[in-house]
Nucleic acid binder design. Structure first.
Lengths: 214, 214
DNA sequence: TCCTAATAACTGACTGGCTGGTTATTAGTG
DNA sequence: CACTAATAACCAGCCAGTCAGTTATTAGGA
């Protein structure tokens, strides 16, 4: 009785690119661009190395695709946050910061952030894409919202862009910490707790007397 | 007329290691570990590739030396800061934060930070060394100082470690920004201004009423 | 429904170039 | 002259990228 030999591979043209990009994201996030081998990516994607070249002309193009795919969902989150920007500022912020940690936990933001930072010299275009498409719009929107709240008298005077940086920096550091130091035995940072405590700290530091009373 | 041909090389055994490490720091900071070629390092150090191996047995050892040389001065700064920790907390902090930006500007902290983050998976020992020798002591000292100030009633309640992170994160982000986004045309962050504004924000957010009155 | 031919997704062995590391040789120094 | 820092040519291994061949899949004919 001839046992029905399972097929050596299956043709799934439509699914391959996404699978490859997903695999590449993991490998790149682990090793960085240069140290990542195409054989590793292919293996994790359950495909041969040759197959990669059916979908992407070069290693750099895979990298590009990974970063772009990493930008998109974050961009949506930013847009969604902006759409709700009519609320009063303090509560808007509390809501935003409450949502953020779960987003960070579920997506692979951390690995991508590490990649963008680590490979920025070798791929300036990617750092630029990230800045232009994601960082600058997000930071700009936050800066604008802060400036508006200052104009309304809710927040005290000061450079709104620097206030925005003061606000988001700890979350970014939390992500980097998780990727860099926690794996080598450092005490983890509870990003949710950090977010909550930091927002209150920030509000106390930036609200004007009028705003604080509200 | 015999033109006085300059010597092909000079023997300067004592100076070479430092020159090599300095060159390696620049190259590693630019390209990351894997993408950095030994020929580049040798060329920048004004030396042949073979000469590298007179002083360091392997590429990783050069990397190690670079990181260690990068740790030492920062560690001294932290220690010096701690020695003065008898002052009252708010002013201690203001002084510390005033000193920090120039330190960041003069040393090549930025490149090293980028390196440690980018290569942490491939060289966990280095991330660990940085954490154990520099980050953890610094953060721990800061946490301790905050906890002490809380005990004295100067600062309000809250997780002192998270407060410490809230305090230093923006400076770290400033450094990363300078290394990652400024080179691709992003608007620079004025780290000194950020430090000053952020410390005041932080103090308003963390000082207790009693502390604020002082 | 079964068989066959045509198509194209996929494989995996191969290669060319690059780079970490070695070593025979040269040349500065005392 | 003896010694050794430093060189530069060299080697070995690794990996991105290639391609000739293999196999799943589909279309069409009987």
């Amino acid at each position: 009785m001839p046992s029905p030999r399972p097929p050596k591979f299956q043709r799934r043209k439509a699914d391959r690119p996404d699978e490859i990009v997903a695999a590449a994201l993991e490998i790149f996030a682990e090793k960085g661009f240069a140290a990542a081998r195409l054989d590793d990516i292919a293996a994790r994607a359950g495909v041969s190395k040759g197959a990669l070249y059916l979908y992407f002309p070069t290693k750099q193009d895979i990298f590009r695709a990974v970063v772009e795919q990493g930008v998109a969902p974050n961009l949506d989150i930013v847009r969604a946050g902006l759409a709700a920007a009519t609320d009063d500022f303090a509560n808007l912020l509390r809501g935003l910061m409450k949502a953020l940690p779960s987003v960070i936990a579920t997506t692979s933001t951390g690995g991508i952030v590490k990649m963008v930072i680590g490979e920025s010299r070798n791929f300036p275009e990617l750092a630029q894409a990230w800045h232009d498409k994601l960082v600058q719009p997000a930071l700009g929107a936050m800066t604008g919202a802060i400036a508006a709240a200052q104009a309304r008298g809710e927040l005290r005077a000061g450079d709104p862009r620097l206030y925005a940086i003061s606000l988001v920096a700890p979350m970014l550091v939390g992500v980097i910490w998780r990727e860099t130091f926690t794996p080598v035995g450092a005490e983890p940072i509870d990003i949710a707790a950090l977010a909550e405590q930091h927002v209150e700290l920030w509000l106390r530091g930036v609200l004007s007397q009028a705003g604080a009373a509200a």
